[in-house]
Design a protein around this nucleic acid. Structure first.
Lengths: 345, 345
DNA sequence: TTTAGCACTCGACTCCATCGAGTGCTAACG
DNA sequence: CGTTAGCACTCGATGGAGTCGAGTGCTAAA
């Protein structure tokens, strides 16, 4: 589709623009050395590239900037992953050498590392409870009509919820049910809890328990891990402010507003997990008006081969892809390795 | 210190400036009606007020703006709490009528209500675990050498931590200890757990258990609720961006950066809890460079007479004190009432 | 003591000239 | 024929001059 020379020039322009955030002129490309042509020649090619839709011109007498299509081409043809400085790779490795116990803490910490290393905003989804299984269930009375339901997963995540106890249900009764559940449901994946409750245990429970219906309602409530099944971690939100394209308060407002809408961000990240490997979404590909000038790069991490969470970097479309992509790649792989190892133990 | 007329004029100026965010001239004050003097007279008084340090002049031919001292005077002499619209009070009442079980959720929700009602940023400290007591303790093995420690308080808060189990300690041994602890420590305030563990139980435990030292280390770890004792909730951070004084990205950057530093914010809020009732800190009184142009208004809420958390509103010094103060007042009182009632049940 | 009148100040805004980076086109060059 | 030098042209950015007007301080009269 593009000649070798066009490819080189487009590459050079995107590269330059990523560095400078200013429209790139033919002269500066010519002087870079890696494209050995005169400004005039480059100008001709630039005109062609613009016609093909890879470049844009803010106004007649300015240089060119990459279009979304231009970025897309650049990313898709990015040279075999750029090498990171060894000390940076070391930083990431070291992080996993640290003794951290709580799964979610590890993910959160990974987020701050990401945002610090890249100077962009990191958005991560914590390990999905979905694919973990029940380790222990408990119902602890607090007062006459409330109790805390506690669910512990095999990964050590603890979810809790305060539930209301229907009038007439005795503590003894509840204990019986809880014992039964622990006996029968330990090891069952969290997402199967509800169906297991109804299908397999329903009858048995009905035999032991008088207030069957009320109790299932309580358990329903306890097992219903709405959006709490996964936690969202955001780090380096203010890095957005350092980007010249967002120096304007009005432009940044919408973005920061969205940062407070956890569910929306979750959906955004979750929709990525379908694809495998590193996924790059540029501008409108993110499907969010406020992010038209942003790019989102995501990767997933897994436990035992099953993808359970997502790590992502959000920055301007003029993002340093060549640097961010390998960072995400390494970090996600390390996370997977770390969790899998931990899980096996 | 000030004449009645000076007080009125100062009041009028602060009032106007809060509304308009623009330097206030003598003419506009004269036209307000509540101060029945000509611009010339008011000009004279304004000159005096400036000399006394209550007003400032951005430049010679501009109106006056209140100085920190001016705001302070204004706040300290604020007329007996302004009345809120009944429907606003109703909004807050309604919120507490809702059936919400988890304590922290209530606080978090209160934060969003605060920021929405005021259009400023709300910062709240969740109920301190410190003053709650142990309801249940549990140690749940996950793998050969790790376990989840779960602490449930009488308020239904659940804290959990993954701990490492020293080699050689058997599960049976651990269970013995946990049973003993539940038997002896239920009802003990969280902050006394550690000392209770050492002083009262040390000897008894030593009798039953062989790996005494290793086990206390584990329990130490479990009971050590570092900064997790309290949770911070921030809402409406982007409301800051709508304030004309922060239209500049450089000015806002520092503020938003600090918003990501949870521990700093915590200290900031906690230092308020010393005072009772509503506390207003203006500009430099907050003791933070980035907040020189901000004011922080805080109130505390209590459980059983003991103050356990703080709710606060951060906005520009040019904040609508007359509105924010009663809102905070009502909400904090409602929170106290709500928690106390809930606690009694 | 209060107020009307007035000269003065100074930021905000508009207009305009200048500057320069970058372009597109044409013609010359190897 | 591809490449390049040369050149006129475009257009945003920059900066200075002029104007406007809100607001002041001071003086003198009511």
């Amino acid at each position: 589709m593009l000649t070798e020379r066009q490819r080189m020039i487009l590459n050079a322009i995107v590269d330059d623009y990523i560095r400078s955030a200013e429209p790139v002129g033919s002269r500066s490309i010519s002087k870079r050395g890696d494209v050995g042509y005169s400004p005039a020649t480059i100008r001709n090619e630039m005109a062609d590239l613009e016609e093909l839709g890879f470049l844009e011109q803010p106004h007649t007498s300015a240089g060119r900037i990459p279009s979304h299509k231009g970025y897309r081409y650049y990313v898709d043809h990015l040279s075999p992953l750029n090498l990171l400085a060894p000390e940076e790779v070391a930083t990431m490795k070291m992080f996993f050498a640290e003794k951290l116990n709580a799964l979610e803490q590890v993910v959160q910490h990974a987020g701050t590392i990401l945002s610090h290393m890249t100077n962009y905003t990191s958005i991560l989804l914590g390990p999905e409870v979905f694919h973990t299984s029940l380790r222990h269930f408990q119902l602890l009375p607090l007062s006459d009509n409330t109790a805390v339901a506690i669910i512990v997963t095999n990964t050590g995540q603890v979810e809790n919820k305060t539930v209301t106890i229907p009038a007439g249900v005795s503590i003894a009764e509840m204990e019986k049910v809880v014992n039964l559940l622990n006996h029968k449901l330990t090891g069952v994946p969290i997402y199967k809890l509800k169906s297991a409750l109804y299908n397999e245990l329903g009858q048995e429970m009905q035999r032991y328990v008088t207030h069957f219906e009320e109790l299932t309602k309580v358990l329903d409530e306890a097992f219903d891990n709405g959006q709490d099944g996964q936690r969202l971690f955001l780090s380096g939100a203010t890095n957005m402010l350092t980007q010249p394209e967002f120096r304007d308060v009005d432009k940044i407002k919408g973005i920061l507003d969205l940062f407070e809408e956890t569910p929306t961000l979750m959906k955004m990240l979750a929709s990525a997990s379908a694809g495998t490997g590193i996924q790059v979404r540029i501008g409108s590909e993110i499907n969010h008006d406020v992010f038209v000038n942003c790019s989102l790069i995501t990767a997933t991490y897994a436990i035992e081969g099953e993808s359970v969470g997502t790590i992502g970097i959000l920055g301007p479309t003029r993002m340093d892809y060549a640097r961010v992509i390998p960072i995400l790649d390494i970090l996600s792989k390390n996370l997977t390795q770390f969790f899998t190892k931990k899980h096996d133990k």
